[in-house]
Design a protein around this nucleic acid. Structure first.
Lengths: 259, 259
DNA sequence: CGGTGGCTTGATCATCCTCAATAGGAGTGG
DNA sequence: CCACTCCTATTGAGGATGATCAAGCCACCG
């Protein structure tokens, strides 16, 4: 059995909501390796000038995952850090008897950091995914020479901590309907932060995944979806998409939290 | 309604378990203001040489709380950071209808940081408490000139994030007995990390507090205590103390998590 | 078309919650 | 020292939310 301090894991950052961020460098040469990266400005990469960014990029590599393919497992040595550039990942922890708690979904632009030691959770693709990958040792060294990135990482960790606490309220105190409403609105907000002002969002994860994220069963999730649909709050579209019809009642349920 | 980015809050660090930490400065002059501080070596203060520590101390002040007295409320402006030097605090979030989720208990030596914006949770004394307090702006400036403290804060945030995820597993997937077993063992471990190898620990918080931390009701907590007592795993002593009689069965229940 | 896998729906069950009453313990005043 | 109060913890009975078990449905795909 590993010692507790070896079980530490890092920051997995989901850009759920806006947070105070450093100033982005919007223009880099078109022929730059990161020039076409669709998420550069959403990550700390956007903090770097072209020259630094090139040096940084040179230290990493890219990869690709098929749906269901793991990026790493809980207990694996954690010596890489990742930046998700496309697709969706789920992060989860297992109990010995197989019960599973999904602790978050990562979308393009999210950072998946790791601290020294072993991974405290597993990461797996929900749909085809692509990522940039860096050796943690090199990454840390790079951060040491770029304090603005260190500061950004700290803010990301603090932000993620706030999100985790929000989720603790959901898991500890909300009803099934409230959990799903919170989840859906969160997805819409995250989508809005990235794309346009769409009222339609894709749900790449299965009902089982949603259930394991919300502390419910797939049946209860399904019933709650049906209830929302019947009440005219949402519409379920082909290709795993959901349309938001009435934000009000859902917000009422999600009851963000008291001020 | 505040914008999302204003709702950010900071790092509240519970020294639940060991984590990789910077090297402590064990000797400082006896007449130093922090010379008698019982928790100096458990906090980042222990990283500072006497001279720096004096400068740091000079920027802060101390305070005291009676049981039940709030340190701040969710929604208050967050422009101070705290170091708990004695007593116990509970941190919690409320839903509009009064449902409460306690997101953590702070013990002496724990740091209660805040990020710009408003507090995302409330903090309140469970038993008489004492703390050091610093203006966040000054604290940040001090951190900027002491990168070793910045690094420590980052590690603390990452550590707290791991603990929050562990709690998500508890809240989402564990049974009542498993939750209480996990909670009790966590308390024993935290106590051991601070004091001696005692098998007796004090529970300064009420059954209601424990329930709101574990996502249960006080009745269910009480019944689980009784079950553990009846099974001979623990003994309930006067003055809110619990003695650990059989660690094995409790660990079985807590089922830390799969490797 | 038949098969496969995920989603939905239904019926029953169990855990935990709710409501209510009792017991215990600390503090107070006679 | 004892009675009284207040507050919390414990215990009990009944009920509800969500889990479990079990079909049926639907889309997708060979």
């Amino acid at each position: 059995m590993r010692s507790r301090s070896e079980e530490e894991d890092g920051t997995a950052i989901a850009n759920r909501t806006a947070y105070p961020r450093g100033k982005r460098v919007s223009l880099i040469p078109a022929d730059h390796a990161c020039g076409l990266c669709p998420v550069r400005l959403q990550t700390f990469c956007g903090l770097l000038e072209a020259e630094d960014l090139a040096r940084f990029k040179y230290q990493g590599s890219t990869g690709r995952l098929k749906p269901g393919e793991p990026l790493f497992h809980e207990g694996d040595a954690a010596d890489l850090v990742y930046n998700l550039t496309a697709g969706t990942l789920k992060l989860y922890k297992l109990l010995p008897d197989g019960r599973r708690q999904i602790i978050g979904f990562l979308l393009p632009g999210d950072f998946l950091g790791t601290a020294p030691g072993d991974h405290a959770f597993s990461a797996e693709a929900v749909e085809p995914a692509e990522y940039c990958r860096f050796a943690r040792a090199r990454f840390d060294a790079f951060v040491d020479t770029h304090p603005e990135i260190g500061r950004e990482l700290y803010l990301m960790a603090v932000h993620e901590l706030a999100a985790a606490r929000e989720q603790m309220v959901l898991l500890g105190r909300k009803t099934a309907a409230e959990r799903l409403a919170t989840f859906l609105l969160g997805l819409f907000d995250r989508a809005r932060a990235r794309n346009a002002d769409w009222e339609i969002v894709r749900l790449p994860m299965s009902r089982t995944d949603i259930a394991d994220y919300l502390g419910l069963t797939k049946e209860t999730v399904s019933r709650s979806f049906t209830a929302f649909r019947t009440a005219g709050m949402i519409r379920l579209l082909p290709a795993d998409r959901v349309e938001l019809l009435q934000r009000g009642p859902l917000e009422e349920l999600a009851s963000a939290n008291a001020g």
